[in-house]
Structures are given as C-alpha cells and as structure tokens.
C-alpha cells in the first residue's frame, strides 16, 4: 500500500494559504476564453471520459426508443400523417409569403439577418456544480467554433460558447447567473437585457416603468449584443411587477427552450461582432 508522506500542520497551513491565494486569483484565470496549460490535460481527459459516457447513454437510449418504446406508434403515425398534410398546405402558403418578403427586401436593400451558417452539436456533459449552468458540446475549435458564438435550438436561445478546446466547447446557458443577452419585447420593441437566474425564470432588466409590458409578450434577441442575430426567441414574459417609485419594471421571462432537457444544439458560426472581438483580444493580452 502506498504511504502518504507525513505532513505536519505547518505544511498544511501553507498549503491552505496557497489554495487561498489561488482562489483569489482565479477569476482572472476563469474569464479567459481558453484553457491554461495546467487546465488542459484535466479538461481534455474528463471530456473524453464524458464523451464515452455519452456514447453509452446514446446506445442505451436508442435501443430503448427504437425497439422497446414503440407502443402507440400506429396511432401516433396516423396523427402525424394528418398533421403533415396540413403543414404541407401551410408551407406552400408561407413559401409564397417568403418570396414576397425576399422581393421586398431586395427592393429596400435590407440585409437578411436570419440567414446564418450553423453547425449541429450534441451535448455530452453538464456542469458538475449546481451553482453554474453550462454544458459541454461535441464540437470545438477544429470545427471552427470560437468563444462568444451563439448557441440555439429550434425553440430559441440556449446560450453562448465561453471556452473551446480543439474537440469540445463549453456553453454558458441562458439561465446562468453570469449570462446576459440583449433582448426586446416583440409587441412593443422595447429593448432590455435578459439575465439568467438559476432555478428561476430569467429576468428582463432595464425596461422603464412607463413602457407597455404584458404577461405573455414574446421576448426576442435584439441583435445589439453582437452574439445573436435579431429575432431569435428568448422566451415569454410570465410575470410583471411594477413597484411604485421604481425606475424599471421587474419582469420574469420563461425560456423558450427547456434548458434542462436539451440534447442537440445549433451553433451559429458567425464570428462575434468586431467590438466583441476586440474585447476578447484585449482579454487574451
């Protein structure tokens, strides 16, 4: 059996002190968009193990969903066929509208902000600490991903990339306390900042008390943060409090995406806005 060297209390106290200094310095380390040399081996090896776990999980869940959980498929199939027919006719109608919109945009020389290149990635792990909301995705620097790229699903905003390794990326979710996105209320176009709040609805801040805000209003990205293009769903307003003598409304927003159950995401492969790029470079220097 291996024996630990005997460590006296003075050495332990010194160790305690070193850890304390490290903790105090750590915000500087943590906010960098890349991993330091002493972090890389650990981040890489843990991500590889987690990727293996993900493969096992995917295997088990595909066996379950493809072979075992096929009860009621016939009924579901009939319902989907009917829905498909309805959607096909609706699609033709919407295509006509899109062509008309394209023609108008061409006439007005407007830039199409919705056409974005994206890459699909799978979530392989979640943050091990309950205090942070983040996920690790299966694509990284090799696939052209960089920090501050937006991550979405068909339901809306998921978060943004904060760190990358060649094979994996860490995505800070919308619900994290350190996350904030520029948003606007679709109906009235009032702009504010949507901030995360773990385990609770998101908060839409800086909407002045005189603004018209109603429960059920849709909140979209405003595109002014340089990460997300305009018009992606963030969520829906679930509660509005307007305290007397306050400057701003207190607004709660339910995310459009169930962030606890996301499996696959789309990363918008658009480089961050020049200002964000500059700030990022300053951070690296």
């Amino acid at each position: 059996m291996l024996k630990f060297p005997s460590v006296n209390k003075k050495i332990l106290a010194a160790f305690f002190l070193v850890i304390g200094i490290f903790v105090l310095l750590s915000p500087e380390i943590k906010e960098k968009p890349h991993f330091y040399f002493f972090e890389r081996p650990f981040a890489f090896s843990i991500n590889v193990i987690q990727s293996g776990f993900d493969s096992i999980f995917s295997g088990i869940s595909s066996v379950w969903s493809d072979y075992i959980a096929l009860v009621n498929v016939r009924v579901e199939n009939q319902r989907l066929l009917a829905e498909n027919q309805r959607l096909q006719s609706e699609s033709v109608f919407l295509q006509e509208k899109a062509f008309a919109a394209d023609r108008l945009m061409e006439l007005l020389k407007l830039k199409d902000t919705l056409k974005k290149e994206y890459i699909i990635a799978t979530i392989i792990a979640k943050d091990p600490v309950s205090w942070s909301s983040a996920v690790v995705i299966s694509k990284g620097g090799k696939d052209g991903l960089r920090p501050n790229m937006g991550v979405i699903t068909e339901g809306g905003v998921v978060g943004r990339i904060v760190k990358t390794t060649p094979d994996y990326s860490r995505v800070l979710l919308l619900s994290d306390r350190n996350s904030s996105i520029a948003g606007l209320i679709q109906r009235t176009r009032f702009e504010g900042i949507v901030a995360g709040s773990f385990g609770r609805p998101l908060k839409l801040n800086y909407i002045t008390i005189t603004s018209d805000v109603q429960k059920g209003d849709l909140v979209l990205t405003s595109g002014t943060d340089g990460v997300f293009p305009e018009g992606i769903v963030i969520g829906r307003i679930s509660k509005v409090n307007s305290p007397k003598n306050a400057m701003f409304h207190s607004i709660e927003v339910l995310p459009g995406v169930n962030l606890l159950n996301v499996k696959e995401v789309m990363v918008l492969k658009t480089p961050p806005a020049p200002e964000i790029e500059r700030l990022l470079k300053e951070g690296l220097d």
């Binding site: 490290f22 943590k30 981040a43 843990i46 943050d127 350190n178």
Partner: peptide, 12 residues
C-alpha cells in the same frame, strides 16, 4: 477546471 463557475472555489 470542468465547471463554468467564475472562481476556483471547489479546490477550497
């Protein structure tokens, strides 16, 4: 290292 927390706190 693998957490997105803003500070190295678990070491402590």
């Amino acid at each position: 290292v693998i957490s997105a927390g803003p500070v190295y706190i678990n070491i402590f």
